[in-house]
Write a protein that binds this DNA or RNA. Structure first.
Lengths: 221, 221
DNA sequence: TGTACATCAGTGAACGCGCGTTCACTGATGTAC
DNA sequence: TGTACATCAGTGAACGCGCGTTCACTGATGTAC
């Protein structure tokens, strides 16, 4: 075993990745342990050699934060940081592609409410991941006052998360696009520079442009 | 039957109210038809005299919009409208009380992601309710340009929804309060008056004040 | 007023199925001598 | 090099239970004459 990871460790990782994807796609409650294990090519019984319970798995998935989200991994791989990181992520986060691909998207708009009903361990893991995200956003804001920076960061994340929840819930694609466009416009205002209520391009127009983006699939594979 | 509502109609209403509460508290998937009917004092079999399926019930619940949300009903009963309506609702929506009482709160932060995975009928019902909410918010904004007004309204709703999702997910109450306070501060900016990026009180401070608000119960009764 | 019948909301048992979890086991791999 | 044993990841059947839905039925209420 010259490998850095043992065989068991690799299986655990595979379970985590599969669970993360399935939870985001179908929801935590709607995804069975059997389905997760089957996605890895194993049977349900083996699950309990890796996790104490299904809710333990949820906590572990949340603990991985953005590591299973290509959007975040790619931004890091590209060496982005500061304001570049925030602007790039904001654009990708609020894209129709992200709306249409929850299985590989951010965990929060996919699982947020279920986390709110989960046990303390899962909520603590979620909180840790969120704090990490807030730190990254704060670092990218052109805002001197640190209180205001964290307030802006929280508002940015809240608006982005809420916009995806709304955009995914709505039946009409045009309205859905409008929601994302509105959030994109207003996020610019919050990112800076300087005083969050100064020097910002006026938001408002973008939502009206018909953005044809191709069909929106009901469900990804 | 001199009543405005027949016996069956009353039962249907009771089922809807119970389902709305239970769905918000425990989630749509985690709530069984039996539980809903038991909450009304009936057995599961009778359910199908009122609804074609469980997902039909979800669509019906969503179709009621804010009618099962005391916060909205009270604002209407008080005769609020325009900017008063928006400010009052924004404050209540982003209160710790709303965070701690999802069962009687807005449907969106409680059920949003599950609606995103639901069938077209449920999504259409959700969309209609959301459009109604947007209209009310637009009417309350001191913003002349109608494109900008609807963009602002969407951003306001997105931020409020996202803030509740984050606030409910996080384990630490202080951070949770901070999230709500940040959203409250930035919402003021979006409500107006005039240009959304001018004449706004600087947000940022509120999030730092320790707001003791009493214990946060894990689950309401 | 009394009897016979129709309507209809709700019952409760049953359907096949999937859930989370346990556990005795198999069979491949690694180690000791 | 060969044999005996230990380790250990994963199997697969079983547990009790709850799921969404169907359907023959009950029993209360309403209507007709």
């Amino acid at each position: 075993m010259a490998d850095g990871q043992g065989r068991k460790e690799q299986t655990r990782e595979a379970i985590l990745r599969a669970a993360s994807t399935l939870f985001r796609r179908d929801g935590y409650h709607a995804t069975g342990v059997d389905k997760v294990m089957a996605a890895v090519g194993l049977t349900a019984g083996g699950f309990y050699a890796h996790f104490r319970s299904k809710s333990d798995l949820l906590a572990a998935v949340l603990g991985r934060g953005g590591r299973d989200v290509p959007m975040f991994a790619a931004a890091d791989a590209a060496g982005l940081d500061g304001v570049d990181w925030v602007r790039t992520l904001a654009d990708q986060y609020l894209s129709p592609a992200h709306r249409d691909g929850p299985a590989t998207g951010c965990l929060i708009p996919a699982l947020g409410p279920e986390v709110g009903r989960a046990d303390p361990a899962a909520r603590a893991a979620f909180e840790a991941a969120l704090r990490g995200l807030v730190r990254r956003v704060v670092d990218g804001l052109a805002v001197a006052d640190s209180d205001r920076a964290s307030s802006n960061a929280l508002a940015i994340i809240a608006m982005a998360v809420g916009a995806q929840v709304l955009a995914r819930g709505v039946a009409d694609e045009a309205l859905s696009d409008q929601i994302l466009a509105a959030a994109r416009g207003h996020l610019e205002t919050l990112i800076g520079p300087g005083h969050p209520t100064r020097d910002a391009p006026p938001p408002g127009r973008q939502g009206q442009r018909p953005r044809k983006q191709g069909r929106r699939p009901k469900r990804e594979s």
